[in-house]
Design a protein around this nucleic acid. Structure first.
Ligand SMILES: [Mn+2]
Ligand SMILES: [Mn+2]
Ligand SMILES: [Mn+2]
Ligand SMILES: [Mn+2]
Lengths: 222, 222
DNA sequence: ATTATTTTTTAGACTCATCTAAATTTATTT
DNA sequence: AAATAAATTTAGATGAGTCTAAAAAATAAT
């Protein structure tokens, strides 16, 4: 059975929109995510259900089958491995890799991915701190919290981003923040819940609560 | 103007079928090459002509415009760079790279190709000895002759293949022949125009005329 | 110069992925 | 419990890319 590029993108979208609860993904949320009309989504859901990649009940939302989930995870694996390649080998910046990986993730060759994985040293995290599932589809999730949930002045490690837009990533770069960096919360303004942090020897940086909610961290020594 | 993957494959096919003489490529030859029906080819030729990528006169065959040619050469450049990547960095063998490169050549990012080119050390030849056009589209052709045109017992350098099928490439590998190898013609059988050659310290290998016609060589010290 | 053959184009149909507009179902308010 | 609003599906249409069958043009053979 062959799966088209379009079908792959639907499968991936369903995976991303799936909650850990067993509640089905709604047609509208897929419609928004994929920027297709809801009626187009319905058409595709019927097709994916025929192929046993999803479980679909009219009006009731949709869930991936095991088969569908495997496909989704494999695409994500490919996407993130290519992102590592683009960053580590071709020196792209972390805000440039996603769009190109969106294309590369659809290249069909299991052997290619196996070799790419080895070539890159079997990385476990992509340039944005997201875990790369292994060949069997296992994610190695490191638990993190958004910076704005941290209410104490602590030493912090920056381990991921919730927002993946180019402008957000570029902004973080501009204030000297990269994945793995340690920084210190110097002050929390309890009026607007904004932060002042100090990255290495840089000056203090002001971070709005909105920004802080998209910065995923781990508290040092914990 | 965007060019679809399908259109790219037609443009590439037209480029490959173009003779150095200014004779148009026929509908049937494209039909054979692409394994599409002639009627489908005609449809696409109309579309490509509308986009000014080809010059097309009904019943008269087709020629690439300068614009079309540029696109064709760029696709070939991408294809061959990816082949080098697959072979040099991911250790694929020369018979495995083509099919994957057929997919990779359609990835759209000029920046990606620029960086890939640098990463690979700006190679000028692909794994099959074919020239890689530079950023400006210039090919650096090295002149070669098919082995079966060489009628004297000489020292030879193997510099390319005319046939790119997996089975042919695998066979060459099995007799110890790889691009750049030097070998000596030990005998030419004038009954069937077959060859006996000696690769390095290996035993003698018998090469049929048919095989020899697909082996591109350069005579050593000439 | 006709006739026959081959090549190419046209006509009409199909699948995939999408859309708009209308109908239907589900959820929310009164 | 109706009425209203929101979400979802159905119906019908479109463009890209393909196909088969038939018509037309170009070539080759008599
Ligand atoms: Mn990404
Ligand atoms: Mn990522
Ligand atoms: Mn190739
Ligand atoms: Mn090649």
């Amino acid at each position: 059975m062959t799966i088209s590029l379009t079908e792959e993108n639907y499968i991936k979208a369903i995976f991303y929109k799936s909650n850990s609860n067993n509640i089905g993904v709604s047609t509208n949320s897929l419609s928004n995510h994929l920027k297709n009309k809801a009626s187009s989504v319905t058409d595709m859901l019927k097709k994916l259900a025929d192929k046993k990649l999803i479980r679909y009940k009219k009006y009731k939302g949709v869930l991936l089958t095991l088969k569908g989930e495997k496909i989704a995870i494999n695409i994500i694996r490919k996407h993130r491995l290519w992102e590592v390649f683009l960053m580590e080998k071709l020196n792209f910046s972390w805000d440039q890799v996603h769009d190109i990986a969106e294309q590369l993730e659809h290249i069909k060759s299991e052997e290619l991915i196996k070799r790419l994985d080895s070539f890159l040293g079997k990385p476990t995290l992509d340039p944005h701190g997201d875990p790369i599932p292994d060949e069997k589809g296992k994610f190695n999730e490191t638990k993190s919290i958004p910076l704005n949930e941290c209410k104490i002045l602590k030493e912090i490690i920056f381990i991921g981003v919730k927002n993946h837009t180019i402008s957000f990533l570029k902004y973080l770069t501009s204030i000297g923040l990269g994945i793995g960096d340690k920084f210190k919360i110097e002050a929390i303004n309890d009026f607007d819940n904004s932060y002042q942090i100090k990255v290495k020897k840089n000056n203090l940086v002001f971070i709005s609560n909105d920004l802080a909610s998209n910065i995923l961290i781990k508290i040092k020594n914990e």
